[in-house]
Design a protein around this nucleic acid. Sequence first.
DNA 1: GTCGATCCCTAACAACGTTAGTTTGAGCCT
DNA 2: AGGCTCAAACTAACGTTGTTAGGGATCGAC
Lengths: 208, 208
Amino acid sequence: MRIQREQVVAAAWALLDEAGLEGLTMRVLAKALSIQAPSLYWHFPGKQALLDAMADTLVQDVARTLTADSPWEPVVRTVAEDLRRAFLQHRDGARVYAGTFVVSEHTLRVSDTVIGALGRAGLKPQEASWAAFTVLDYVLGFTIEEQGFTAQGEVTAERAGALRELARARYPHAAGAVEAILDRDFDRRFAFGLELLVAGIRARLPAR
Amino acid sequence: MRIQREQVVAAAWALLDEAGLEGLTMRVLAKALSIQAPSLYWHFPGKQALLDAMADTLVQDVARTLTADSPWEPVVRTVAEDLRRAFLQHRDGARVYAGTFVVSEHTLRVSDTVIGALGRAGLKPQEASWAAFTVLDYVLGFTIEEQGFTAQGEVTAERAGALRELARARYPHAAGAVEAILDRDFDRRFAFGLELLVAGIRARLPAR
DNA sequence: GTCGATCCCTAACAACGTTAGTTTGAGCCT
DNA sequence: AGGCTCAAACTAACGTTGTTAGGGATCGAC
């Protein structure tokens, strides 16, 4: 046993961090493992299977600290924050996850945690699962945009001026908000959107 | 003038619809235009620029029916539904959009519409723009998942059984919700999440 | 009728994912 | 100890990808 799946996945994440999704090629990954590229096909049937395995490890630590009697609000917040942290842990993490559509045990467990908490709070099963996926979809969309923006880096800097000018000339409301658009404080933006969702869920709960 | 940018973009969308994002290659696209692949590089500096241009056309019809005095709730709902419709209009549309991070005039106009409506409703500029982007991010995340699921097609059918079994054995809450997970009625799921966000925004509005 | 801009061509390169077929090497059985 | 097995790697190659270099063709304008 010289190299097994786990080591390949770990090396793939490391390579992704320094080379990005476009730089994650089978040959370079093989070289990082001191191996020839075709040898990777013993461990995985193809590159997509490798990406699936990577995506699966991403969410393996989400919602680990929660118990079955946690109130729904901390559950929703913790899962959302855990998930975002997981996506951000590696470069292009959200895109890797979005490109795979594996319904693995981990994703099932994460869903189960949120759905259970919302069910205990009084939501009907269907509503509970729909609400859970709404939160998950929001986190995915947000982090994709976040990583896309931070990846651009310098490009936005030179564009910012033109953007401000265009907004001021023709889109007055956005003009006042261009600063918010270009705002790099994603933590606060994420927290705000999450609170919006929590408030929306709360409004749907049965009166008590 | 034999072929110009607009025709290339249109042909690219048509090719995407029948071949998917992986099948959208410069050579095949060129052949569809009765052209050789390198000729495309006169119109676009590279493939990414073509994808950027495609993404831009996607949102060009969003929020066109709205006026500056529309109440905020119809504005939010219409923009969200328009945006989802735009993403779904072409195969892999959401992934194409997510892969590009152009802040074009169109995206600015869409943002402006929502931000303006929320501002008139009483939200502070920063909150209005944050809320607008929360809605946009939700739509993006939702449609990416939606198109990923519908693209899989047959695969999920054979997996559904194993998923149900695993859920029943170990994740009881999700078990009751597996049907909701596998539910193909994305329209209702989307509407539910959107209502969650609308309710969340409403809760943040100043009392009156 | 020429000139510049526009549009397209052929030829080729390096890199990609992947397949085919072969060889190595450790662990177990007898 | 010797041979078998099978996991894990190898070399060589195929077809395709995005892209570059450099050279023609077609067009309106003067």
